[in-house]
């Protein structure tokens, strides 16, 4: 530790307790007196002296050894090492570990939602591209990953409904589509699909009055749709089978002609036409599956097509 002589009182004091007052070295007491006597308008220039042999951090005395400095302050070797390897407090270390674990946990916990989102998005893209099978599987995968999402459940139901309609399971399709219709926006066309399913249910239940009523309602709304016109012809044919009313037969043939004209050779129309003509000819109503089983090569003019 270094000692200095006070220029005013001539006492020797530790350097760290001394000040530079203007040009003079003074002890603490003299510095305080000088401050009291000074004019408040002209503040004194006072700087504390720093002993280069005493550590400013831990006050350890380095004897005559001049200590290294950090930020202009003499620092002993131990404090020098400490300041260059300043330790993180234990609670900070624990918090950092906790935060890292939380991020890992949150990522794992939320991963199924991210997967669900990606599958839902993929399903929409596939649907837009007309790949209904892929869209179906992705929508169901999304619903499995996020079972609590009513929207995803509705989307899965929508595809269930489509699949059931394709397989002529109208009752199941109607149930699924009604569920989907509660959540999905109108752009999915669920109302039209529900109508198709209701028509299918009416046909399956041999409720030809309702079948005809629904088909006629659809035909009024979409008069230039070949499929709807063919369905109207089918309903009229069913009603003819049930009643034997020739007028219904004539109406069925007229609707069928209109459908054929509108379809202009569209695939699927030929099979539908054959089924309706068979119905009118035989006065027997059979569904598509049975018709295909019975007439695997088609039916024309009262007889099975031979190959």
């Amino acid at each position: 530790m270094r000692q200095v002589l006070c220029d005013l009182c001539k006492h020797t004091v530790p350097m760290n307790d001394a000040f530079i007052l203007g040009e003079a070295t003074v002890c603490g007491a003299c510095c305080e007196n000088a401050q009291k006597e000074s004019n408040a308008d002209a503040p004194l220039s006072i700087r504390q002296q720093i002993d280069p042999t005493v550590c400013r951090r831990c006050n350890s005395d380095g004897g005559n050894l001049t200590l290294p400095t950090v930020a202009g302050m003499p620092i002993c070797e131990a404090c020098y090492v400490y300041m260059h390897h300043y330790p993180f407090p234990a609670w900070i270390k624990a918090s950092a570990v906790g935060l890292a674990l939380l991020i890992v946990f949150a990522t794992m916990w939320n991963l199924r939602f991210v997967r669900g989102y990606r599958e839902m998005h993929g399903s929409m893209v596939a649907l837009g591209q007309g790949d209904v099978v892929l869209a179906d599987s992705m929508a169901h995968a999304a619903a499995r990953h996020v079972p609590e999402s009513l929207d995803l459940a509705a989307l899965a139901s929508y595809f269930d409904g489509l699949a059931n309609l394709r397989e002529n399971k109208s009752a199941e399709a109607l149930t699924s589509l009604k569920r989907a219709g509660e959540r999905l926006p109108p752009s999915f066309g669920v109302d039209d699909l529900i109508l198709q399913a209701r028509i299918g249910v009416a046909f399956d239940n041999k409720n030809y009055d309702e079948y005809l009523a629904l088909a006629t309602q659809e035909a009024k709304e979409r008069p230039n749709d070949a499929g709807i016109r063919a369905m109207e012809a089918s309903a009229l044919a069913c009603k003819y089978v049930a009643t034997g009313n020739e007028s219904l037969r004539e109406q069925a043939l007229a609707s069928l002609k209109l459908a054929k004209d509108l379809a202009a050779g569209a695939p699927g129309m030929a099979n539908y036409e054959q089924r309706i003509l068979h119905r009118l000819s035989s006065r027997e109503v059979i569904n598509e599956n049975e018709f295909n089983l019975r007439f695997p090569h088609g039916w024309q003019d009262g007889k099975e097509v031979q190959q």
Binding site: N110, F113, V114, G116, Y117, V146, E148, S149, D151, L152
Partner: peptide, 8 residues
């Protein structure tokens, strides 16, 4: 995702 996309 769960909050904003699925409203959970």
């Amino acid at each position: 995702v769960p909050v904003k996309v699925f409203g959970l």
